[in-house]
């Protein structure tokens, strides 16, 4: 059999896709992981942005990011074009979450992302090659992940926890503060880094709610157990802190990435 990824070659990739790749002779390691994290950060932002433009719901976008992180958990970033992998992750996530998105749309939106204000992509050989690459790369991802492509996300837990928290808090205090919007936004930001695959869905959901509540000084009534343990019995304060620390690291990185 030929290599399945022969389509993923440079001839198929337009110049805008070959963006900012570091050279193959990477030496350092510490520096490497930092750089990899930054690349992943940017690519995930790309996933989220084209996700919004493609009208994807929150969970399919989250699935695309998890697919992306799980793929690069297994392979070396230097070997694969991350933006191409990202496009295929978006495509695959659409299939997994039953919100099918066409390759054509993904390619056009990605083109627009890299060339805002530029001419639209011609429907020429480059386009068809690129579409083949996206489809081939999807198979590659499926193989790498051994078809384990459906994930449990924190979103549903966050919703449940939020409803429970809301019922415990003074109605006016709740409506004065945007805890809901904040925790939802925080949750989306988690997907910029591989933290989204290193913590359980419940723990992330609890930590997001915790951070949002604390940011606005909303206090839940004190009971026998802390509120987070009432909502999710296997979570500890350390777990929450670990998630929040990693999220704050992502925010720190934001400054360096833009």
């Amino acid at each position: 059999m030929e290599a399945p990824s022969s389509h993923l070659s440079a001839r198929g990739a337009p110049r805008w896709l070959l963006s900012g790749r570091r050279s193959s002779s990477s030496a350092g390691t510490e520096c490497d992981t930092g750089r990899d994290m930054k690349t992943h950060f940017r690519v995930c932002r790309f996933i989220m942005e084209i996700g919004v433009k493609l009208g994807m719901r929150s969970v399919p976008v989250a699935t695309a990011c998890v697919l992306y992180h799980r793929f690069f958990e297994r392979v070396n970033l230097a070997e694969y074009e991350p933006y191409l992998v990202a496009m295929s992750c978006v495509y695959l996530a659409g299939k997994v979450e039953e919100q099918h998105i066409r390759t054509r749309d993904i390619i056009n939106v990605s083109h627009r992302y890299f060339n805002s204000g530029g001419a639209p992509l011609e429907c020429d050989k480059e386009f068809w090659d690129l579409r083949d690459s996206v489809v081939q790369c999807e198979i590659l991802i499926l193989r790498q992940l051994s078809f384990q492509v459906s994930f449990e996300h924190p979103h549903k837990y966050l919703l449940h926890y939020m409803l429970s928290a809301k019922s415990l808090v003074n109605r006016h205090a709740w409506s004065r503060t945007p805890v809901t919007e904040t925790s939802w936004a925080l949750l989306r930001d988690c997907y910029h880094g591989s933290m989204c695959i290193r913590h359980s869905a419940q723990h992330i959901a609890i930590a997001m709610l915790y951070l949002a509540l604390n940011s606005y000084g909303v206090e839940l009534p004190v009971g026998e157990k802390p509120w987070w343990q009432v909502l999710c019995d296997d979570v500890t304060k350390e777990d929450i802190d670990a998630v929040i620390t990693e999220l704050l690291q992502l925010y720190d990185m934001e400054a360096k990435c833009i």
Binding site: R15, W16, L18, S19, G20, R21, R22, S23, S24, T39, R42, V43, R45, F46, E49, Y113, F114, C257, I258
Partner: peptide, 12 residues
């Protein structure tokens, strides 16, 4: 977003 990531490089 992605300003930094847009630098194109043909060498790669």
């Amino acid at each position: 977003a992605g300003g930094g990531g847009r630098t194109q490089s043909d060498t790669n």
